[in-house]
């Protein structure tokens, strides 16, 4: 039997999810930042900047204020049980988004590209961005990430082969694209970043897969041993680039690298790179007959 969720309860639950996501840096991200602090030299700008970021995150959580004023694109990945209306869930999210903007958990961030008018409540065409999948369990799972403009602007997409990088259509070619992209990003995406990668697909599905990777816990190890090896090699090598927090130099350029794949056409080989800033804001909630749980 499929569970029944009423919309009012769902609106409240999503509002709390938005508040948590905007104001609380996830524990695994805090742990990765702490590891970064330990890896930086005593007295270096890198060390003090990382500590400053963490202090800001703690302060934001205590005061329940946004970690960063750019509360970004609101990205939802939803697993919905059989028999629950997608339209009801979507309506509840839109309502919660408007409320969250009123309560200043979100900054008004949704601009019509033709007229330049800001809707003022973070809703609009494909805003917030919601992706649905149907699941087997009698529960509704909602993952939310807030992704700012600075880091979205340094995200990138490559097409293999790439002559300039001497990159072929294989994992070695993928590696080269990612090194190039993170070098190009410098500190502009508010480094240290979390790098989500989608190998394959078309230009859209590859980037969605890259964004989906951003929901994995930073400690998560890829079940595919080849990809697990590439993730760990990239993590080590990217941190030798010397870009460091905010691009001030140092050993902490990325906090984690996460790779997913999408089956591709024989004719295309895309590498999609989604860069998430240190203010890596993502949380999830699960709702079932018993109530709501947050991660």
């Amino acid at each position: 039997m499929s569970p029944h969720f009423d919309k009012a309860t769902l609106v409240d639950a999503v509002l709390e999810l938005i508040r948590k996501t905007s104001t609380q840096l996830p524990r695994d991200v805090i742990a990765a930042m702490e590891k970064g602090i330990a890896n930086e030299e005593e007295g270096s700008p890198a060390k003090s900047v990382l500590s400053f970021m963490l202090k800001n995150a703690i302060e934001a959580e205590t005061n329940s204020t946004p970690i960063c004023q750019d509360t970004g694109t609101n990205i939802y990945f939803i697993t919905i049980p059989v028999g629950v209306s997608m339209r009801m869930v979507e309506d509840a999210i839109i309502e919660a988004t408007k409320l969250a903007t009123k309560k200043t958990y979100l900054r008004p961030n949704s601009v019509d590209p033709v007229t330049g008018v800001n809707t003022g409540d973070n809703t609009g065409i494909m805003a917030p961005f919601i992706h649905f999948e149907e699941g087997d369990r009698p529960e509704l799972k909602i993952d939310l990430a807030l992704k700012g403009g600075g880091c979205e602007n340094v995200s990138d997409q490559y097409k293999l082969p790439d002559t300039r990088l001497k990159a072929g259509r294989n994992l070695e070619g993928v590696y080269k694209c990612i090194v190039d992209a993170i070098h190009n990003a410098q500190g502009l995406g508010c480094a240290p970043g979390v790098v989500g990668i989608g190998i394959g697909g078309d230009r859209a599905s590859g980037m969605i897969q890259a964004k989906k990777q951003l929901f994995r816990k930073l400690t998560d190890i890829n079940p595919n041993p080849e990809l697990a090896e590439l993730e760990s090699k990239l993590y080590t090598d990217l941190n030798t680039l010397g870009i460091g927090p905010m691009g001030f130099g140092g050993n902490t350029t990325v906090l984690s690298v996460k790779i997913g794949t999408v089956h591709r056409l024989p004719a295309s080989f895309f590498v999609s790179i989604s860069y998430m800033c240190w203010a890596d804001r993502r949380h999830s909630m699960v709702m079932d007959e018993k109530g709501v749980r947050y991660d």
Partner: peptide, 28 residues
């Protein structure tokens, strides 16, 4: 943090130059 001073130095230019050298080596 001072990242560009009055002596013609830019930390941004320097970091980029260094990271470019490392990136090229990694990429081959």
């Amino acid at each position: 943090v001072v990242t560009m001073d009055s002596k013609g130095h830019s930390l941004h230019a320097k970091i980029k130059e260094n990271s470019e050298a490392v990136a090229k080596k990694l990429i081959g």
